[in-house]
Design a protein around this nucleic acid. Structure first.
Ligand code: ZN
Ligand code: ZN
Ligand code: ZN
Ligand code: ZN
Lengths: 140, 140
DNA sequence: TCCCATAACGAGACTGAGTATCAGATAGGG
DNA sequence: CCCTATCTGATACTCAGTCTCGTTATGGGA
């Protein structure tokens, strides 16, 4: 169950597991696409009217830190978050419907290795994001 | 000369060429690394005390729009800008010294083609960014 | 199970990046 | 040179994100 794996991830990262953090995670996963922190906060308050604004923001960063969510940048300088496989960093985002698909690490690793070798760079992190129109939106 | 090419780029994009826009471009290029809009504004006011805050922000977006600069996201949810070859989108950023090197499109295009074919995605734009330590910082 | 140190929560104040407004200035085509 | 659409800059404003601090609750240890 995904909420259990998130709880374990939090514990492994030295973070406490709280009701609120699981609520945030559940909402993020249920939405299933990229969403701004503010919109997620509004959504959460419908089911959990007492949840705090700061808690949502803090929790989203915690989820990113333990690797089950990822922060994006939207147009207009606003952050958005998406539930995400741990350690996964590469995405295919449809800017029509907002759906985010994941890209396997295998596509990227060889490029990183070549760049590191060619430029003498020690690479700690990589981000590869493609933007376009998903198959479903292109059809419909 | 690079400022002339920037002027041409602005004109080609239907944007006017003003003294302030060239000043912003010149400062951005002289700095030669990623810089926040606020820091660039502070820097610009030393030489051009009457330049307006909004002008700097607007101009940076205009430079991005015509393809001679690129917007980054720094930690802490702050945008940073860097002078950039037109249409160039891929970078190698040293998080020790802030230097940004460019990555040739040739590294990325084959990956984009494979992803598009495998997933039925029509790709409009791609971002590939590597973060790590540059050769100079690793040595020193 | 109970305790308790410590981390997380929540209400609300605060910060500051970024934007809107608008009167005045200016680029640039005719 | 003129005219007008665009740009500038001073200022006010918005609102995403953070901080504070008193309260609550987790989770490890007795
Ligand atoms: Zn992912
Ligand atoms: Zn779509
Ligand atoms: Zn570049
Ligand atoms: Zn460096």
């Amino acid at each position: 169950m995904s909420s259990r794996s998130t709880a374990e991830r939090l514990r492994d990262g030295g973070e406490r597991v709280t009701r609120q953090r699981l609520d945030v995670w559940e909402a993020l996963e249920r939405i299933g696409r990229q969403v701004s922190a503010q919109d997620l906060y509004d959504e959460l308050r419908r089911r959990h009217p007492r949840i705090g604004r700061a808690t949502v923001y803090r929790t989203l960063e915690a989820l990113v830190a333990v690797g089950v969510a990822r922060r994006f940048e939207l147009d207009g300088h606003v952050s958005a978050y998406v539930a995400c496989r741990p350690q996964h960093h590469h995405h295919l985002a449809c800017h029509r419907c907002g759906r985010v698909e994941e890209i396997d690490e295998g596509y990227v690793a060889p490029v990183a290795a070549r760049v590191a070798a060619d430029r003498g760079f020690r690479i700690d992190d990589a981000r590869l994001d493609f933007y376009g129109t998903c198959a479903r939106c292109a059809a419909g």
